[in-house]
Design a protein around this nucleic acid. Structure first.
Lengths: 198, 198
DNA sequence: CGATATATGGACCGATCGGTCTTGAAAGGA
DNA sequence: TCCTTTCAAGACCGATCGGTCCATATATCG
């Protein structure tokens, strides 16, 4: 792998994707126009199209970035080497943090994209389904470990509890659009977990 | 109130709103173009603008219709004269029905609109917040009645249970985009309710 | 120094956007 | 019959859409 011959790329591709991600995140796919992306990435039209192909491809890159960030957080919080209950608590706390006040108002790129495009756009649908499945197995694993540690309340089945928790978390992201108080969301999340953990 | 002088209106306004609602429901606000609405309502451009003003106004009428339908269902299922636990079960069953297979894929106009517009469009934000509040008080009422009937599990607080259930239900509408099996969604909903009811 | 490759900025493209307006037919009341 | 109103069909509007292209400057190579 030797250096290419001409002038080297002078902008940071990852940074551009992140800036684009923030625009899509705030406005949604259809409502984001090219000038918005150019302003945010500080790229010229030519450079953006040369680097990313078209709006849809750039969007997928941005979505993948968002998903990767979410997976990283999840793998950290639900790390098998951590105490599973602590992990679940940390996982919930992250969602609460993102689901109140201004953070909440901003919404969730994944939920917004799922509602806006998942039905019509196969690439998006595939990504959403895949992330959902990963999330389900990770949370179910955590509940399983909690069960073997004897921390689950009577009659709680790990995979069922995981499905419930996941629906709850997606729902938090929807409710977040009303910018609820942090204490309310936190108390609600705590109350739910308390029905599963002893 | 005497009859107007000219040719009477020859199309059904409510039916047109309903058809428009279905288009917005399937495609979202921004992705719905005028020709889509004209085809669905079978109206000419002139008639549509004369009757509804503009796209945004028509959208709000459609959204209001969607909300009214949801409120009607809710008032029926959570009717105070019904057994509260039966009511909650029926309420959940309705969501399960709408959150699986093709019904699920179609999504929820309210959730989609909240994610797409609630942050930027005050009219939409107001409607969403209002519906959310109504939903919360109605479900909390049902849990309260269940409590006085001695049907709540130990340590369950009605208003907290209501907030949990509502997040769960919004989340169901998101997860529904992966078109899950009906039995799965039903079992999950049953399992959640089982944590609250004895 | 050339050759090569990437950058910018903006002109330019056809298509489509939401919205207005005109025309002429049709359907009611006076 | 005449007046009024509504209808459908579609021409038309300026603005904006996503996307291409070009001229020019610049940076790094052999």
């Amino acid at each position: 792998m030797q250096a290419p011959r001409g002038r080297p790329r002078s902008f940071d591709v990852d940074a551009a994707i992140e800036r684009a991600m923030n625009v899509f995140w705030s406005r949604g796919y259809h409502a984001t126009a090219l000038p918005d992306l150019l302003r945010a990435t500080k790229l010229s039209r030519g450079s953006l199209y040369a680097a990313f192909g078209d709006k849809h491809s750039l969007f997928l890159r941005a979505l993948d970035r968002y998903i990767a960030d979410a997976l990283t957080r999840m793998d950290d919080e639900l790390d098998p080497r951590r105490d599973p209950v602590d992990g679940l608590r940390a996982y919930l706390a992250g969602y609460v943090e993102r689901a109140c006040g201004a953070n909440g108002r901003r919404g969730c790129l994944l939920v917004a994209t799922a509602m806006e495009l998942a039905g019509q756009d196969a690439e998006v649908g595939r990504r959403f389904a895949s992330f959902f499945k990963t999330m389900e197995t990770r949370v179910a694993d955590a509940f399983s470990r909690a069960e073997t540690a004897g921390r689950l309340a009577d009659g709680v089945e790990p995979s069922s509890a995981a499905r419930i928790l996941i629906c709850f978390l997606w729902g938090l992201r929807v409710v977040a659009k009303t910018a609820p108080a942090r204490t309310t969301s936190q108390a609600t999340a705590d109350a739910l977990l308390a029905r599963f953990i002893k």
